[in-house]
């Protein structure tokens, strides 16, 4: 991509970075002309994922991009950490399952709020989650 503003990397190392991710994703969602409900769904999903990166991944990076497909515009957000990884992804995507103190809605809930969801992880190799929400 040649337009430098069509992509932003946000390091996630502390609480306030989760808020920063929400703000950047919101701005991109507005640029991609997502409706208010879709903006809210995407921002909420990325808030969950950023917190996972911080708490379970021990920190990492979020990469937010504008994406296009034909006439559709959308926002892609990728969360990468080099933490312990997820040994059982099926279990981790189950509602109510949690390895921490949460409600177990982070991953499974985030998946329901977006149009595309990709989870790439392996025990000991870190975790990358990529989500996309398209304008309608």
């Amino acid at each position: 991509m040649t337009d430098p503003s069509a992509r932003e990397d946000i390091p996630i190392t502390a609480d306030e970075d989760v808020v920063r991710v929400r703000q950047v994703v919101r701005a991109y969602a507005q640029r991609a002309k997502l409706g208010l409900v879709d903006q809210t769904k995407l921002v909420t999903a990325t808030s969950e994922l950023a917190r996972n990166t911080l708490i379970y991944g021990g920190g990492g990076t979020a990469t937010v991009r504008l994406v296009t497909e034909g006439r559709r515009q959308g926002v892609s957000a990728r969360f990468h950490d080099e933490g312990p990884g997820i040994p059982d992804t099926e279990l981790a995507l189950t509602d109510g399952w949690t390895s921490g103190g949460g409600m177990g809605l982070g991953l499974s809930g985030a998946r329901r709020l977006v149009d595309e969801f990709e989870l790439d992880t392996e025990a000991g190799r870190g975790t990358t989650v990529t989500v996309v929400k398209w304008s309608r």
């Binding site: 409900v37 769904k41 809605l105 499974s108 809930g109 329901r112």
Partner: peptide, 14 residues
Amino acid sequence: MRPAVAITLVELGL
């Protein structure tokens, strides 16, 4: 609660 927040909460499963 804003409408968009309410819709999102339900879908999140909370």
